[in-house]
Write a protein that binds this DNA or RNA. Sequence first.
DNA 1: CTCTACTGCGTAAGTTATACGCAGAAGTAG
DNA 2: CTACTTCTGCGTATAACTTACGCAGTAGAG
Lengths: 252, 252
Amino acid sequence: MENELPAVLATAWGLRTRPGKGPRPGLTLDRIVAAGVHVAGTEGLGAVSMSRVAAELGAATMSLYRYVAAKNELLDLMVDAAVGPPPALPPGEDWRAGMLRFGRMHLGILRRHSWIVRVPITTPPLTPNQVGWMDHGLEILAGTTLEEYEKLSTIMTVSGITRNWALLTADITAAAQASGTTADEAMLTYGQLLGKLVDPRRFPAIGRLLATGILDVPDDVPDADFEFGLARVLDGIATLIDRRASGTRAPN
Amino acid sequence: MENELPAVLATAWGLRTRPGKGPRPGLTLDRIVAAGVHVAGTEGLGAVSMSRVAAELGAATMSLYRYVAAKNELLDLMVDAAVGPPPALPPGEDWRAGMLRFGRMHLGILRRHSWIVRVPITTPPLTPNQVGWMDHGLEILAGTTLEEYEKLSTIMTVSGITRNWALLTADITAAAQASGTTADEAMLTYGQLLGKLVDPRRFPAIGRLLATGILDVPDDVPDADFEFGLARVLDGIATLIDRRASGTRAPN
DNA sequence: CTCTACTGCGTAAGTTATACGCAGAAGTAG
DNA sequence: CTACTTCTGCGTATAACTTACGCAGTAGAG
């Protein structure tokens, strides 16, 4: 029934032949998306309104709707453009090094465009670069004994923890900038707030956590939590691969 | 400097002594939050406007601002209320069973209130129930040899993949409802769209994935991807614990 | 009784996305 | 060359939305 794919997807994938009628278009989907990315990058996602983007292009607000059915579509395309295409697969790289690189590159991108994590996701990934990164991940895992759906799950898991870490740190950084301090200081403020609010009798484990004082000192390794989680996930994948090679059974 | 904690947090943590002056308040923060949760649950997060919530209570829109500084604060409190407090720690449960339960319960909550994943997160978790679940997670891991910061990372990782999976499936389910089909069918539609858009020459790994046909058949296990990721993370934690017990070194 | 702190809320301002439809441009058919 | 079709840009208008401001009235304190 509703097999009509959104027009904007057809354009993004280059499946759209411009019909030679009518006036020459003064705008391009690419230019609109680029303007949106520019506004988001310089003034934050909150500044991205249809009229603001249109003004950036010297066009009228409603002109954008010739290229985009709704603001959501524009946001999705902005994310796709900011993410960009994946690099070529480095030759001779084993799957673990590959997924490590995959996660770190992904985090780097989300840091470069910290507004990405604020874009409300409303559709599964279908834009070219998103699909491209998925392909890249599958390629990294191609040499393993993982089932096809397991590769997919692996990529989702790595992307998930990356996105999550980027979001959390973006929140803290934003709070820091709002009060004019640095991200490290804001992290400490978070620990102090926790200490002020939490009654150790009611939440004993958090009490013990605070007592260790690790929240009072900035991390010496940047993104230590992220690296820990990523390493654990990869250890888990390695376990599965080894187990399968030796014919052992899994827990759970 | 800005050590003034948001007034609403003080109220949520019960650190607010009502000054006996003035007229008796007709509203309560709890009632407002409950009304918001009710509206979100029955009509979706999009229906949660300040006036809609106020109407639910028979109050005027601006009355809510006596209790909440901005809509964001209300949303944060709504999430906290919907998440609810963690259960008591089952006695005799080992850490792995505990984290498995932790992740599954979390997913259950996000499914019960699928609007939660749509709430834009703008602050690190500081509300009582969020902190309560963090405490619960730390308690689950209390008996392990993990460092304190590693416990935190573990909880974050599990929460991250859970939230991510809940968001992805919520998207697909929403798309399904919008077009009047089931979630399973929507998942298949996703596979078909992918097949229509992707040129296997440009994205060979995705081509191979599609060729296996696993996207053309509904999952026989519900949330198989989530369970896979969760099991892998827990395997990874187990590896770290074992490695530490036997004095081996880690990769990376 | 007076003072004071507090509550509910009416009004209004400023943004927002976006539906609708018109004027004009550039091809195409005759 | 002349319709005719199709497409572009965009002006206007609508229906939301959040929230600043300030007033009227209430209840406890002194």
